[in-house]
Amino acid sequence: MGTAEIAGTAGIAGNTQLVEVVLPGVVEPEGLQLRHREVPAPGTGQIVVRVEATGVSFAEQQMRRARYYDQPPFPFVPGYDLVGTVLTAGQGVAPGLVGKRVASLVKVGGWASHVVLDAADAVEVPAGVGAVEAETLVVNGITAWQMLHRRAKVRRGGTILVHGANGGVGTVLVQLARAAGLHVIGTASVRHHDALRDLGVTPVDYRAEDVPARVRELAPGGVDAVFDHLGGRSVIDSWRLLAPGGTLVSYGSATTRDDSGSKQWPVLKILGRVWLWNALPNGRHAYFFNVWEGRALNKNRFRARLSADLTQVFQALQRGEVSAHVAARLPLTRAAEALRLAESGTVAGKVVLIPDTGDGASAAPAQ
Rank of each mutant, 00 (worst) to 15 (best):
Y251S: 13
S253A: 15
S253K: 11
A254E: 00
T256G: 03
R257D: 10
D258N: 13
D259H: 14
G261F: 04
G261Q: 08
G261R: 09
S262C: 01
S262M: 03
S262P: 06
K263T: 03
Q264V: 06
V267Q: 12
I270K: 11
I270M: 10
I270T: 12
L271I: 12
L271G: 06
L271H: 13
G272I: 10
V274Q: 04
W275L: 13
W275V: 06
L276N: 09
A279D: 09
P281W: 07
P281L: 05
N282G: 07
N282C: 09
R284A: 05
H285A: 13
Y287I: 10
N290A: 11
N290G: 10
N290P: 02
N290S: 13
W292M: 13
E293K: 08
G294D: 07
A296R: 12
A296Y: 01
L297V: 09
N298M: 04
N298A: 11
N298S: 12
K299W: 01
K299P: 12
N300G: 08
R301Y: 03
F302Q: 04
R303G: 06
R303Y: 02
A304F: 00
R305Y: 05
D309A: 04
L310P: 07
L310V: 01
L310D: 04
T311I: 00
V313F: 02
F314M: 11
Q315G: 07
L317R: 12
L317Q: 06
Q318G: 08
G320F: 02
E321G: 05
S323Q: 15
S323R: 15
A324V: 02
H325F: 04
V326A: 01
V326Q: 02
V326K: 03
A327V: 09
A328C: 06
L330I: 11
L330W: 05
P331V: 03
L332W: 05
L332Q: 10
T333E: 15
A335E: 12
A338D: 08
L339G: 05
R340D: 10
L341Q: 13
E343A: 15
